[in-house]
Design a protein around this nucleic acid. Structure first.
Length: 423
RNA sequence: GGAGAGAUGGCAGAGUGGUCGAUUGCGGCGGUCUUGAAAACCGUUGACUGUUAAAGGUCCGGGGGUUCGAAUCCCUCUCUCUCCGCCA
């Protein structure tokens, strides 16, 4: 959520930045400013009347104590009008504040100056491409066929016990999952991220804090009985660890990593492009999260991007890095890099990581602050990234590493899988 | 699921109608002392809003009510804890 004070002081800039995100309802900005003026004016009047009423109440107390009952009663006769006014102004203030909040929630985060203009994924900027695309033999199989051939994943069994998008990993397929998770966690730890194991279900306040709620409500599984949401990413519980927290400047940056399963309803996305592991309702992911000082959060973003790329390099997967254009970015991000691996059998890029700086968009909702060098409260910046999401990594590994003998496990994973080949 | 207790500042824990934004202790910060540190002693230490700065206003889990005045009384919701039951 944007800060009203910033909008108030930087109207032109806000409009200009929103345009990069192709945000159409620019009139909302002026509505917010208008409501904020209204809010402050109402607050001022309310404060004035409250001050009078407070001092009268104090006087009455004093008079009662000193036995001057008549004088006290005289003052009491005047309090009725204040009371009414306080109530009326208070009601109005509540309405205005609510309206202001509703409008504010509709404004997306402002994109960083480096964000390219654009509308569709085709407008994303390819920052770099790394590694060469393997040339597979003519009879190369897509991962969903490899998974069946080598008995790694049973999609139909998943359909039976749950539904589409909930695969059952079996045999070496299950071990490969476990190996990747352990490997990613170890690498994150080496990079200074402290591991946590958070809950997989969160309450409404957490969903709001990291901006999944209210707008993306339909994308999360909801447990009606307990009013809890299944997490779509570890970003939600891990970032919310710092909700309502005031850090010291020395505490920054805070670095956490977490492995969790992630649950996404993915309502309305069915078809050939979601086959196999390409898009699931439940999947495994190691997430890295940082709370950073605003002065260096973009350096932190680059470090996180480098960490993710390091993983892809060690796994020897060809990948590219995209800087998302204004139109393709998420509502709450200020700058996002997507990492995509080349899935050789499908002949397409698969997104395996998304690394974002949210600046103060989340921390404003989270009330995540730190005391700066001047001793003043300041909102921290939050960032997160997948490092990495498993299914598409597995898809790419299977497809790219298929040989006549079987599937070759990348060297760095062998200590974890304890086998070199899937045959 | 049944029964009970509770929710106050970073933590612990006072406070049953006015002088309470809130005693005190711990912790934090600053200082004295010390070669340095510890101990001891002294001081200081909530957030939000608002203003050039003040003043002022709001906040004692959330919401509502009684009252001139509520942390304190009433209603309601939520959450937490304890015991019993069930159970990995």
């Amino acid at each position: 959520m944007l800060q009203v004070s910033y909008i108030r002081d930087n109207r032109e800039k806000v409009l200009e930045r929103l345009a990069v995100k192709n945000f159409k309802q620019s009139e909302l900005v002026d509505e917010v400013i208008q409501l904020d003026n209204d809010r402050r004016q109402t607050q001022n009047r309310l404060d004035g009347v409250s001050a009078e009423a407070n001092s009268a109440a104090k006087q009455i107390g004093e008079l009662m104590r000193t036995g001057k009952k008549d004088e006290a009663e005289a003052i009491k006769t005047k309090t009725g009008a204040w009371k009414e006014e306080i109530r009326a102004l208070g009601d109005k203030l509540a309405v205005v504040e609510d309206e202001l909040q509703q409008k504010l929630l509709l404004l997306p985060n402002l994109p960083h100056v480096s964000v390219p203009k654009g509308i569709t994924p085709e407008d994303n900027e390819v920052v770099l491409e790394h590694g060469s695309k393997p040339n597979l033999p003519a009879n190369a199989l897509p991962h969903w066929e490899l998974a069946v051939k080598y008995k790694l994943i049973d999609f139909e069994l998943g359909v039976k016990i749950t539904g589409a998008g909930f695969p059952v990993y079996i045999g070496k397929g299950a071990k490969l999952q476990r190996a990747l998770i352990a490997y990613f966690l170890d690498e994150a730890e080496k990079a200074g991220f402290a591991e946590v194991i958070p809950p997989l279900v969160v309450n409404e306040a957490s969903g709001f804090g990291t901006t999944q709620l209210p707008d993306k409500e339909g994308q999360m599984y909801y447990i009606n009985e307990d009013k809890l949401y299944l997490i779509p990413t570890a970003e939600v519980p891990v970032t919310n660890l710092y909700r309502d927290v005031i850090l010291k400047a020395d505490d920054l940056p805070v670095k956490n990593c977490a492995y969790t399963q992630c649950f996404r309803r993915e309502a309305g996305s069915y078809g050939a492009h979601v086959r196999g592991l390409n898009r699931l309702h439940q999947f495994d992911k190691v997430e890295i999260v940082q709370v950073a000082h605003p002065d260096n959060s973009y350096d932190v973003l680059e470090q996180m991007s480098a960490h993710v790329q390091g993983l892809l390099q060690k796994l020897q997967l060809p990948y590219r890095v995209l800087r998302l254009c204004g139109g393709d970015m998420s509502f709450s991000s200020a700058l996002t890099y997507d990492m995509e691996t080349w899935s050789a059998a499908q002949q397409r890029w698969l997104e395996v990581s998304s690394v974002s700086n949210f600046e103060t968009f989340q921390s404003n909702r989270l009330k995540l602050r730190f005391r700066n060098a001047e001793g003043k409260m300041q909102l921290a910046h939050t960032l997160n990234g997948s490092a990495l999401a498993l299914p598409r990594i597995v898809a790419t590994l299977l497809e790219n590493n298929q040989t006549g003998r079987g599937i070759k496990i990348p060297e760095v994973l062998v200590p974890y899988t304890k086998f070199e080949w899937i045959e």
